[in-house]
Computed example of a mutant assay.
Amino acid sequence: KRGISAQIVHGDPALRPIPYQVALNLIIDGENLIWCGGTIIGRNFVLTAMHCFDQNPYQMFTVAAGAYTIVQTKSETGSTQLRRIKRLHFPLGYNNRTRAYQRRSEKSNDIAIIELDEPFEFNENVGPACLPNAEQMPRSGCLISGWGKVESLKYPRVLQRATVSVFPLEECGYDLTYLNANMVCAGGNNKDSCQADSGGPLVCEHFGKAVVVGITSWGKGCGLDKVYGVYTNVHFYLDF
């Protein structure tokens, strides 16, 4: 299962900030620590994984957009914009009293929409990904990204990215009893996301636009042969 500190495995450094990519930082003793990722879908809204908040309330997080280096995610330096979370929107099943996510099955409905305390200012370094079309979901030309640990188990200095493809559920490499229609799997050539990339984007190009089709959720190991990462299927939640 993907934990709270993930990695892009067998990826490469991004050349610049990825406009829709955000870092969710947990504030501990005044320090911002990389905890999860997310995808900008509007000036006030970010898409992420609900399990990122299993252990800590949303009030303990900052949201950083426009960052390239891991240092830039921690403060408003360079192109970085920092925001706090005003409200967290999630599917039925989340228990506000315990902050524990009650899934229909162990790994289902791993999605949340962050509402920011103030809007992002869109520019060349900060901007949204599109939501998928109700009739069609792109499956190739896809990108995963984040600041999670790399193969050396150290955090990278700069944002990492990897090109992957989306596969049918029966090709994911798991017992199908663990999978359902609200999930997609993606990978190829041992490229994968892992724990501190949780909540981050699986974005595919569709007619020249970046379309968010998945949210980094869980998987078995990282970058294994013919065992792909599992992502929340954004298309399934268009009415959420």
Rank of each mutant, 00 (worst) to 15 (best):
C130R: 03
M183P: 01
R103C: 09
P128F: 02
I113T: 08
D175H: 12
R104Y: 08
S140R: 12
Y101E: 01
G148C: 10
Q136F: 11
N109G: 01
V158M: 06
S165E: 15
E76H: 09
T80R: 06
S105Y: 14
C130N: 04
E115M: 06
K149T: 15
T77M: 09
K149S: 13
S165Y: 08
L176Y: 00
E121K: 06
L88D: 08
A162G: 06
G187F: 03
R99V: 08
A112M: 07
R87Y: 09
N95Q: 07
I111V: 14
K107G: 06
R161W: 03
N96C: 07
Y178Q: 05
N123V: 00
A181F: 00
Y94C: 05
E151H: 07
Y155F: 15
K154Y: 08
G187P: 02
L176R: 11
G141W: 02
C194V: 05
T163E: 05
R157K: 12
A100D: 05
L116K: 12
E115N: 10
R83Y: 05
P119E: 10
L176Q: 08
G148A: 14
S152H: 12
T98H: 05
I114Y: 02
A162E: 02
E124P: 03
P128V: 00
S165D: 15
R139K: 15
I85F: 11
Q160R: 14
L143Q: 06
L82R: 04
I111T: 10
F167Q: 15
K191G: 06
C142D: 11
G148H: 12
A186M: 02
V184C: 03
E151S: 13
V166P: 04
R161C: 02
I113A: 12
A162N: 04
G141I: 10
P168N: 12
P119Q: 09
D117A: 11
P132H: 05
E76R: 15
I144S: 09
L143A: 09
G93Y: 01
R161E: 14
E151T: 12
D192P: 01
R139C: 09
N109V: 00
C142R: 08
E124N: 12
G78A: 10
A134C: 00
E151A: 13
T177V: 04
A196N: 13
Q195D: 08
P168G: 02
M137H: 01
V150D: 04
K191Y: 02
T163W: 08
D192K: 01
R99I: 11
L143G: 02
R104G: 13
L82T: 05
V158R: 03
L159H: 06
G146K: 02
S79Q: 07
R103N: 14
R87A: 11
E135H: 07
N133W: 01
S105T: 15
R157D: 15
T98C: 05
S79F: 04
I144Y: 00
E76Y: 09
Y178S: 00
V71D: 14
E171P: 01
R87Q: 13
E124V: 05
G187I: 01
L88G: 03
